[in-house]
Design a protein around this nucleic acid. Structure first.
Lengths: 206, 206, 206, 206
DNA sequence: TATTAACCGAGACGGTACGTCACGTCTTATT
DNA sequence: AATAAGACGTGACGTACCGTCTCGGTTAATA
């Protein structure tokens, strides 16, 4: 799932560059690229399988052979672009690290296809309860990993005590972020600072 | 939108007791009731306009005459049932009030159609950006009102200082709740206690 | 069903000029006028009961109180305008009379709402077999009356023999006219002359 | 559009034996068969796209992929069954040939789905002026072809003179037939004999 | 003169059918 | 064996128009 590939030509001009008995990496990349592009340019509403096929120059059977559903595809789209985003600052200051990370996250959501992709993914999984389970058990923890790492370092450095309510702190920061995402309200980055301040202050013993 | 009416009979036996040049309250109630019932019994997936028409003994034109979209209808369904839920405790203790309120909320979501309705509503508005705007500006503030009221009382009684970051505290508690809602994770009510503890502690000056 | 009335003002400005315990002639006329106007200006496709109500400034119950169906209304629309068209020439020459009558008829169909009205009526009755029966037994004979009269005079004057196949002659001329009407093919009036020539020639004994 | 295929099994038992990147002949045939069957058994009123889909075991998108409208479908239904009806007698006698052909036609209309189909088609095209044009320019000439052929043979054999008003004769016989069709008046086959007699007599020079 | 009954415009209602959209499956021909 | 192409059945959508019914009001004939 590296992104070190040449951009696929537009659907119609690109010839069948790879066919045969093994999975075509070009095709896979073309599909993921097209998905991200559609989401970024036209949003979730326009992200249909037909539009995807058209833009990727692929076909529906190919897509469904490798992804069991639209949600599974969206998950991969998000995770692939997430590889390019690893803002896990380590300044030694918990509050600062959280702020930098969350501000980067919100900005990245807004400035790329990532926000639209995650928003679409959350929407999509609501149709299927097993998808929700997989999402909660596997996808969500991966999203919260950076926050957890930051808190873990703060525990190590003694900024907060071991056993503090880190889990709910992560949940509240993630929840607030997602709430702003699904309500198209990612402008006020200053809210992040205030929230982080409350959380960090709240985790410290009195 | 009072709910002090007798339940409409099942779709087929209900006769046209009062329709005409004014909006029929029976029809309105039948539609909202049917919507809530479908969501509770069969979930969002089964909540189609056709199923709603069938169960309410109504018609699609009638529904679309009064609600511009499925999202608008879901909003009314939620707000109507929300009238029956007003757990705004006032014990004089901020932490206790928040815990009681949020525990009641999560329980209510799980034990009635309300959780499924809100989950569906969040999903539905993602298809339409104007719906998201209306949701963020009007619906969401109404949902956060009780939390704000609780915090306001705490300010009045001096438990927390004026000007504290109440807004982000509300946002974090709401966000965490919704995150658990959309990931089908409303079981661990103890998380509420921990979160509230962090928030209340965090709002107090050191 | 006289047309000696002032034109109704446009729907919205016309006040309730006649209401009470007897049928309102103004309302009746307004409905028939509006129907003809819609058909002439926008055609059968636009001739809906809602459009009619809007244009006539009337209401659906009023229309359905006096006409059992759209077809019945169209029949009255046609018959009312037909009162203004009675080209029954009597030159003493059968062939000439037929030509003048049919040319007038085709021209009248094209230059007024009449053609569109009849076309609509034929279409409309196809939905209801009792309407077809009434149409065949009562409406159609009234339409063929002038042709029959012309033939009857020719019999009287000895141009054709009694007992000649007048009925089928009428049927063929009517059928050809309607065929051209429903296929939007009323331009070539010269076809009339040729047809009449064949018919008149064919009715004379060899 | 050959009909040399085995009848498709009933909707539910028919398996998808051959679909894919090319148009499925089974599906096409099933649709046309179902259309004819509905028209024959229940008439134009019951001929809805939903009923057709149900009976053919097909789907609306498939139907609209191949036929732009109900009228276009009805045209194909009629033309397909018309392939089974080619009564173009050649006895050497114009009058006899015309009578045999028209009697066969009226009987065929009454005893099969054909009459109802044509009646429905005439009705249907009235909703769309481009459909009328196509109907007049292409469909109608095909229907009149047999009559023209009979007249052409009569010209060749010298029964009527070249340049006689064959076109209007065809138009009158077709018009009379259609007039009887749309007024549900196909019982009196003797009218055909009289009409043909007038026409044939009328075409001969005095 | 007051009452009553029929009619009026307005418009909401349940119902039927429409034509479109997107989905996920399946077949075909190609490489 | 994997691919692009694309037709297929399924199911839901939102709209158009129908004919019925209720509503509040007006007027003409009746009591």
């Amino acid at each position: 799932m590296t992104s070190k590939i040449e951009k696929p030509k537009s659907a119609k001009t690109r010839s069948r560059s790879s066919i045969g008995a093994v999975r075509s990496p070009q095709s896979t990349e073309a599909i993921l690229d097209a998905a991200a592009a559609i989401l970024e340019e036209h949003g979730y509403k326009a992200f249909t399988m037909d539009a995807l096929v058209e833009r990727a120059g692929s076909s529906k059977p190919t897509i469904y052979r490798w992804w069991r559903s639209k949600g599974a595809l969206l998950r991969d789209v998000y995770e692939r672009t997430a590889l390019t985003f690893v803002t896990a600052p380590d300044t030694g200051d918990l509050e600062r690290d959280l702020i930098v990370h969350l501000r980067s996250l919100w900005s990245w959501w807004r400035s790329s296809s990532a926000g639209e992709t995650l928003r679409s993914l959350i929407t999509e999984i609501q149709h299927d309860s097993t998808a929700i389970d997989e999402f909660r058990e596997a996808f969500l923890p991966r999203r919260e990993r950076t926050l957890r790492k930051i808190f873990a370092r703060a525990v190590d450095s003694g900024q907060i005590t071991e056993g503090a309510a880190v889990e709910v702190a992560v949940s509240m920061l993630t929840g607030m972020s997602w709430l702003h995402l699904v309500t198209a309200n990612l402008e006020n980055l200053d809210d992040i600072d205030k929230a982080v301040s409350v959380i960090v202050n709240g985790l410290k013993p009195r």
